[in-house]
Design a protein around this nucleic acid. Structure first.
Lengths: 270, 270
DNA sequence: ACGTTTTATTCCATTTTTTGGAACTGATGC
DNA sequence: GCATCAGTTCCAAAAAATGGAATAAAACGT
């Protein structure tokens, strides 16, 4: 008797067809690989025609895209744009923004919340310092993963295979004298970042700009939110930046708490 | 008679309730503020009870969240997490996109990844050149097989019977002076393409647009992914296009490697 | 080249869900 | 208190989802 490909943990739930479709999207969103109709059938336990109809619906709408062989599906442009807009425009969500504002007051430097989008780091929200000398980087802009503090944090928590795939094809473009353009050195740095739980950007992207970042802890699984303080070298030394760590961690915790508290008690969404 | 406030540009579309719900999410995703039922009614023109039900549904599922006063809605944790996961895990598209971007840098012209979808060639992804003069063709659009470089490559690798079946049902529509509308001539061209391993589109679809394409090699069987460089005749001669072949082939190889890694091999894909 | 398997797709009668005009409720304001 | 405005509930007709079974289309093996 063979291993009996058992697990088949059904996960699709929802009281209405539309919610079941969203539930399916959640399963899809967790994949970092292409998927097939057959695979989903095994994974969810749903009848094949039902799943087929759902996928077909999503494909016609441009939410999914069939890849090459007509068998493997991946996310479509429309779905990705939806996701980006959702994250991007969520900023006036007040609570997070308020925490950011508070942090800026405490440390006296510009702070921002970041997320990984594709192979770049996306600025979700940002509060500028009051100091006259400052870098202006607006929410919505993107920076490469390999030369930003948040980016290195995101890389550090990925599964090795996932990280390798991303790094293998993203050219480690040089922006400044300090940019890590060597894969080996970058891996070393990422490991350091992973073990210490914070990351520096020591003028690796823009000359004169230093940055220290931590992850916003997630209730479970990986986090896709980073929190960072940025400032000009002129004002912000490495030591001073390090001294902000406690405040940074506390703020990250607050943001995590906001998200956690906003979750209907215990059973998450049900 | 007063100005009659009539911005009311309905935007919700979709052939099925579930897609209409996604369409609603898109509208919501574009907001950077909380929103109300009434506001959405005015914005979309949908009946109040209908929208109410939709919002209620999304709220119960944890996708939306009401803001204290029970009147204003904002995005819920579950929806945000969905968006985060979508972006976080699209490393495949990210990696492919990076390869495309790199190729564009090398050759200085717009490049795209294509797939055969039904009887037409589908643009999966595209990166535009920086040059000011350019054709704008977005991902998701489709072009006929008989007058596109990628299309001819797809045809060339088909079994003759398969190709005949496809061509029998696709009228060889004329788009430009150079379009191959004669089946015999097209067969000749396809044979040439098959033996050389690359294909030209010499203003056969759009006047002034030339294109050279290769196939992304597949691990097994036929490939259904094409990689192409496109440019205006003004800048891109046939000779120059030919000189891009090595870069094109190398990029195709990279994409093949990415896909190989991201394709659930045989069975499980978790 | 041909039969075998695997996987995708279509069919369709039944069940479930959506739809939206109208009526109702509750809050706010004057 | 009455007017106003927004949110909510009702419900019968119309539309859509469901999934077992049948079919079609590739991929595979010989």
């Amino acid at each position: 008797m063979k291993p009996e490909t058992k697990p088949e943990i059904a996960k699709i739930d929802g009281d209405t067809p539309a919610l079941r479709l969203l539930s399916l999207l959640e399963i899809i969103a967790e994949k970092d690989q292409f998927f097939t109709l057959h695979g989903l059938v095994e994974e969810t336990g749903l009848p094949k025609p039902t799943l087929h109809r759902m996928l077909q619906q999503l494909e016609t709408a441009g939410m999914l895209q069939r890849d090459g062989d007509n068998r493997h599906y991946g996310t479509g442009v429309r779905l990705r744009r939806l996701a980006e807009n959702l994250l991007l425009n969520n900023t006036v969500q007040g609570a997070r923004h308020a925490v950011l504002g508070q942090l800026v007051k405490e440390v006296g430097e510009s702070c921002n919340i970041t997320a990984l989008s594709g192979n770049e780091v996306l600025y979700l929200d940002r509060v500028e310092t009051q100091a006259p000398l400052r870098f202006y980087l607006h929410p919505g802009s993107q920076v490469p993963v390999h030369c930003s503090a948040s980016g290195k944090l995101f890389l550090a928590q990925m599964k090795p295979a996932q990280r390798r795939r991303l790094l293998a094809h993203v050219p480690l473009e040089r922006f400044t004298h300090n940019t890590l353009t060597d894969l080996g050195l970058l891996e070393e740095e990422i490991e350091r970042v992973g073990s210490t739980g914070y990351a520096f950007d020591d003028e690796e992207f823009l000359p004169g700009l230093v940055c220290i970042a931590v992850l916003v802890p997630a209730a479970k699984g990986r986090s896709n939110l980073g929190l960072a303080v940025q400032g000009p070298t002129m004002r912000l030394s490495r030591e001073k930046a390090l001294s902000f760590l406690p405040a940074l961690r506390e703020a990250a915790q607050s943001i995590a708490a906001i998200d956690a508290e906003a979750t209907p008690d215990g059973s998450a969404y049900a």
